[in-house]
Design a protein around this nucleic acid. Structure first.
Length: 583
RNA sequence: GCCCCCGUAGCUCAAUGGACAGAGCACCAGUCUUCUAAACUGUAGGUUGUGCGUUCGAAUCGCACCGGGGGUACCA
């Protein structure tokens, strides 16, 4: 916002510099910290340091220059005063004009506010990537929330986004599950909660595999029949995979996620093996079978040392690996869509593998290989640096977490707002619970480990999603009680409270915040912003009366509340968090 | 060994190279006859892991250490 005014003033400063033997292009504006008053500031240290005629230390000279510029630059329309202080040139806006133009723009654009115009870029984001026949736990949640939020943010900043999900539908875990099913649960059908049922059978199969005498043998035999193309097993696989997929759909629906394109691991296994053959023929890969696997010695090819290492692309027994399938999948994506960027939301432990895949695709001559980006994020731990593992029984199941959080949220709603009907109450509780669960997953930087603990996840106070949701509910509550919600034209022709100025300033930053978090694939910065915005609103709410105010103050404040609601809801939605209207 | 990530208040985390490093939780002291107290105000809490460098200016950039985590030829 107001970039044109900033550059206009920068031009005037440059003109002054040119006339006075000073270097140009050294002055840039930023916002002023701790302002109770809205304005912008230019540090003059770069100019001072570059001034050939400077006498004395830089800070003093910067202050001197700030004073000279303060006198020399005529204030453009909309500014009230300027000051030179501690080496900074500060310019202050006419508060009423500024406030009115920000708030009017927000209320005019509504939910579109902050969006960048379409840039014609197509981006695919691959995320979630669950294994069928296995449960989703809290560790997987971070991936889904992060990926979904990144998609939302990229869309808001003008990209066409394709949400892709790559499903692990083959492998030992699937065979284990089916073998156990046929032996001990033949003919059984999943109940209402498919995910839970599949998960229970999976842990049963896994337990037998490790503990039950002879079960592993049975699984190996079963695997051999699968490999031989046993029709019955194939049919069972399709049926049980579908159950899993329906279980995933239930979870995605709960979380508010959807996908545009589903890829199955089984779809790319054959093409992967063919690709390996081609790589051997072309000489890039060396075939060590039957004793050793098929590898690509990237360091040897590139002349690097312990940087890309050796990529293993096919087992010595000719069965496929992760890498075998990753290659054709990448190719398929670019053949199917004209992608400007292909993003993989995968945890940081796979960084080397991603690096190898990208380099290998590059060596294979695909020019788009450079447009692959691994969006690495850290895992979710349990307190004491315990990694979630289904083997050790340390997983926190999504189901349990959501149920517990919803119950707690319901208890709070019942206490705080007993008047609302039962349907609304459960709806609100679910939105609050999901928000509370999601927020810690995206409010930390991608590269930081999230430690899950129940106490924290179920805390609805302070720096949390419910805090932000509550601020929005308060805004909604005011608007609901006002006579004509939405029809308020701001003028701000009265002395604004610092809390109002602060709130308006934050509101004006939304477009910048969206583009910044899109550029860095960092929902966390937007999550911080959402919290700051809610805090600023609560401060305003506490200090300024709206409904009891009169005249243009009332009208202006109502429009400010309306704009706050627009921005709070927008930000929450970008983070994948729903905004209830009452709490 | 080599590579990547992390290290900021007791705990969990913020902070485009910019003004005095900020929040939440916990602790202590206050605020509901008021648009919903899931809120707000105040007190206290810091050698930004250590050292050297770059810079007018470093939590932020570089180098070297220390501590923790992860990866490193047939798991994904």
């Amino acid at each position: 916002m107001f970039d044109d005014i900033k550059s206009q003033i920068a031009l005037r400063i440059d003109a002054y510099c040119q006339q006075n033997d000073l270097p140009t292009g050294k002055v840039e504006f930023r916002s002023i910290p701790f302002s109770g008053e809205w304005g912008m500031a230019a540090p003059l240290f770069p100019l001072a340091a570059a001034d050939p005629n400077k006498t004395g230390p830089v800070p003093q000279h910067a202050q001197h220059l700030a004073e000279r510029l303060k006198d020399a630059i005529a204030l453009p329309e909309g500014f009230t005063r300027s000051e030179a202080i501690r080496g900074y040139l500060n310019l202050y806006f006419d508060t009423a004009l500024y406030a009115a133009s920000v708030i009017d723009q927000i209320n005019r654009e509504g939910a579109q506010f902050g969006n960048a115009p379409a840039a014609g870029q197509t981006v695919m984001v691959e995320y979630s990537n669950p294994n069928t026949h296995k449960p989703l736990h809290v560790g997987h949640l971070r991936n889904v929330i992060l990926g979904g939020s990144v998609c939302n943010i990229l869309e808001a900043s003008g990209n066409k986004v394709i949400r892709a999900n790559y499903i692990g539908d083959i492998g030992l875990h699937v065979i284990k599950w089916m073998c156990n099913y046929e032996l001990y649960h033949a003919g059984e059908q999943p109940g209402e909660d498919k995910m839970r049922w599949m998960a229970d059978l999976y842990s049963e199969a896994d337990r037998r595999f490790h503990e039950q005498e002879g079960f592993e043998e049975l699984v190996r035999d079963y695997f051999a029949r699968w490999d031989a193309g046993d029709e019955h097993i194939h049919d069972l696989w399709l049926e049980t995979r579908q159950w899993s997929m329906e279980g995933f759909e239930q979870v995605y629906a709960l979380l508010g996620e959807h996908f545009d394109r589903i890829y199955f691991e089984s779809d790319v296994e054959e093409s992967g093996k063919q690709l390996v053959d081609q790589l051997i023929e072309s000489g890039l890969a060396s075939d060590g079978r039957p004793e050793k696997p098929v590898i690509v010695d990237l360091d040897a090819i590139l002349g690097t040392k312990e940087e890309f290492r050796v990529a293993v692309i096919l087992r010595s027994d000719s069965t496929s690996l992760y890498a075998t399938k990753e290659l054709p999948l990448a190719i398929m994506k670019f053949e199917e869509y004209d992608l400007d960027q292909s993003i993989y939301v995968i945890d940081v432990r796979q960084s080397l593998h991603m690096k190898q895949m990208q380099k290998l695709l590059e060596l294979m001559g695909y020019p788009w290989a450079k447009r692959i980006h691994h969006l690495a994020y850290e895992i979710v731990n349990l307190p004491g640096n315990v990694i979630m593992s289904s083997r050790d029984g340390t997983v926190v199941l999504l189901d349990d977490l959501v149920r517990e959080a919803t119950q707690r949220a319901l208890a709070v709603v019942r206490e705080k707002n007993p008047g609302i009907d039962a349907t609304t109450m459960t709806d609100v509780a679910l939105k609050v619970a999901l928000g509370a669960i999601k927020y810690p997953m995206i409010s930390r930087e991608n590269t930081k480990i999230v430690t899950f603990d129940w106490e924290n996840a179920l805390d609805f106070n302070g720096q949390s999603a419910p805090y932000i949701q509550y601020a929005n509910v308060r805004a909604n509550s005011i608007l609901r009680r006002a006579d004509k919600p939405g029809a308020h034209k701001a003028s701000f022709g009265y002395p604004l409270e610092p809390s109002e100025v602060n709130l308006i300033e934050l509101l004006s930053k939304l477009p910048d915040e969206i583009s910044r978090s899109a550029k860095e694939f960092k929902p966390s910065s937007l999550a911080s912003y959402a919290y700051e915005l809610a805090k600023a609103f609560n401060d305003f709410y506490n200090q300024c009366q709206v409904l009891k105010a009169e005249g243009e103050m009332r009208v202006s404040r109502l429009s400010l509340v309306q704009a706050s609601k627009v921005c709070l809801e927008k930000t929450l939605n970008l983070l994948g968090i729903q905004a209830p209207q009452v709490m």
